[in-house]
Design a protein around this nucleic acid. Sequence first.
DNA 1: ATACTCGATGAAAACGATTACATCATGCGT
DNA 2: ACGCATGATGTAATCGTTTTCATCGAGTAT
Lengths: 332, 332
Amino acid sequence: MSGVSIATVSRVLNNPDLVARNTTERVQRAVRELGYRPNLFAKSLLSKRSRVIGVSLPDIHGEFYAELMHAADRRARELGYHLLVSAGAHQEDAPRTDNDSTGAGFAIDLVDGLIVMLTEQSRSDLEAIARLNIPTAVIGCDRPGARVETITYDNILGAEQATEHLLEGTPPERCYFVGAHKGNLDSDDRARAFTDTLRARGHEPDTDQIAYGEFTFEWGWDWASSRMDADALAGAAVFAANDEIAVGIANAARERGLEMPRDIRLVGFDDSRICTLLRPEISSVRVPIPDLASEAIDALVRRIESPERDPKHTRLATSLVIRDSSRLKERA
Amino acid sequence: MSGVSIATVSRVLNNPDLVARNTTERVQRAVRELGYRPNLFAKSLLSKRSRVIGVSLPDIHGEFYAELMHAADRRARELGYHLLVSAGAHQEDAPRTDNDSTGAGFAIDLVDGLIVMLTEQSRSDLEAIARLNIPTAVIGCDRPGARVETITYDNILGAEQATEHLLEGTPPERCYFVGAHKGNLDSDDRARAFTDTLRARGHEPDTDQIAYGEFTFEWGWDWASSRMDADALAGAAVFAANDEIAVGIANAARERGLEMPRDIRLVGFDDSRICTLLRPEISSVRVPIPDLASEAIDALVRRIESPERDPKHTRLATSLVIRDSSRLKERA
DNA sequence: ATACTCGATGAAAACGATTACATCATGCGT
DNA sequence: ACGCATGATGTAATCGTTTTCATCGAGTAT
């Protein structure tokens, strides 16, 4: 030290106004020369804060994950926080650590708060989270009961737009929804919006018009293939629950000589990279992933820093991006 | 407490053999009933260990990032570590935090070690890392000078395989390499292997046969488009430095009526999801991303836990996956 | 000149664990 | 029966901060 006590050093670093001008300068010089850095563990021990946020995501597909993490990381850093990841923590086969007494797949004691993305309809996850008693922001599910922040994207809005767009050029009985398994929050919402929109047009959808499978290329392919053996999809309009399914459908259709949008009109969901890599480009519902991430960080940080406030529930709009796979000719 | 001192409690938790059988049980029962969990910050303060690993990745594309993080997280968790992310920390515009005195974009003092992926030829990154004086594993660059672990994938091997595969059915003067910008470690290695393989066949590649751009769909598209205006690519074989470029080329080619593999043969790099989503499926060089991640974690943890050992330098093999975009007809 | 305030700084307690050392009882050998 | 090794447990120092409280000196008002 440069002739001063550790208390003064601490003050210089945290409350420079409490200490005399020239002392401040002397200490700062010493700090610089010695390359001194305060020990974060000691700080945390005292403050019970680590400025670390845990992020627990289900096994979502690559792009979504990457985009979400990038945006979250960026926003967290702006606010002086860091991100601790826990990819696929909900999976049963994920190894458990000592510190993970909760089964949430996490070093709970290390983080100031948690961001959890939920895609499945399951109470157990939510209960586990509530039991943690730690500031939490939930992405993707807006009725978690507990006192947590929620950030969702408007599946209904996007799916309505997509369905209405398809209905503009295709009769309701020739419209199809190809979803993932029942119980998936996103797929279910999108299916419901599809159904409701058809009903609003006075058409009760046939069970045949709504199919459940998985969020995969293969499922899309299989669905389209089996359809085409039966009654040929020519003239149909298909709303796929995500882009992978859409691509599967697109490929199967092309292989059978159907051209988009002339013979089949197609809309996906997520507006992922693949949509613009295929020809024709695929229409899709855009989910504002970066906003989702930064809203989640903002909400969580707000909650961490003032826990008394009531949790906020944010819903982000989605928007249909119309591309050649579904564009009506008279409009093109 | 249940009639015992804190020292004994600590021993029960860490060295159960030092304490009497029935005391152990009594304490464990109390621990369970009280839901006691040792404070990690206090532990870290004493041990100077956090069991947290920092991961700093450049702005690589979605799938690569996601796959790497998933595998790294899984392996880290198995070893009792957690991952702190720092996506795009090398970027100039990334906000800086207080704790980031080093400019490495990181709360260095929080982590036991660092995994850094480098894709660009730049000494400054390396020097910054070396100055940190913290256990480090570098992914993607095998000559970092400093005492760090390195984990690379064999760009040369994969690129040689790809080039030789193309040379099997196409004369050397009709083979092209479409790379990213010079200075990118991956692209440069792949370009060199391409050149060397052609030379080994006695053909000195024309400057025209090697192009530099970016790792993007658009660059691939532009390259193919400009080529086709000039001398028509029919009969050519193209090795793209990554899959995005390859897709751009594939689309431009199809738009002009060229069919793969009949008129053009194409091989990409990374073996990403997109390769099997397009028709025809695109040949590509597979990079063992999960292995890359877990090797990096293993190496880093080894180094953290026994720093005296000499750093290991691991190189993982890549392998060409032949699909319809480049398959020779007589072999199909 | 005295008392009072205020600004600057140091001393020491606290955060919650680990661990070297001290203590104490027990059982053993002689 | 005494000394001593041994095993179990408590005491207290320690890690590196922050923060409360006390101290001290100087300036100011009466």
